[in-house]
Amino acid sequence: MKVITLLVIFLFSSFAANSDLKLKYFTNNSYTLVITKKIGTFQVNDFCQKNSACKALQIAKGKPFKIQPTKAPFLGNPAANYCWDTGAKNRILKDEKNNEYDYCVFDDGSMIDAWNLYNTHHGSK
């Protein structure tokens, strides 16, 4: 994908750590608070801090998944789309300033930042 190439040759390559983030997650018709932190290089929710066998970390540390082309006639956000390729759902979470983050949400309740996972598996730069 050329999108990867485009990302690779952009300037300023250091990954800015998100560290602790307090995010709003809309689920079951209301917002709940989700706190995400860095475990190693992975930005994951507190579920993984309590349970290192969480799916988000297992998937992140495992082999990359193939990026599935979408049949839809547009591209969207590649990291958001990649969540679905790994078996997770993509969800948009918001910080206190209403900035939006894409997180891959696994069926055990664990979450990982979508770009963090995408770049881990497919390289950002």
């Binding site: 050329k2 485009l6 040759i9 952009f10 300037l11 300023f12 250091s14 990954f15 800015a16 998100n18 930005q43 956000n77 590649p78 990291a79 958001a80 948009i92 910080d95 900035n99 939006e100 983050y101 894409d102 930042d113 979508a114 770009w115 963090n116 770049n119 950002s124």
Partner: peptide
């Protein structure tokens, strides 16, 4: 593409020549 993409590129700074070439 979300705040994490933005953060990864130091706030979104990209090479103009590359961007225009694409």
């Amino acid at each position: 593409w979300g705040k994490s993409w933005q953060d990864e590129f130091e706030g979104g700074w990209v090479d103009a020549k590359t961007l225009i070439a694409h």
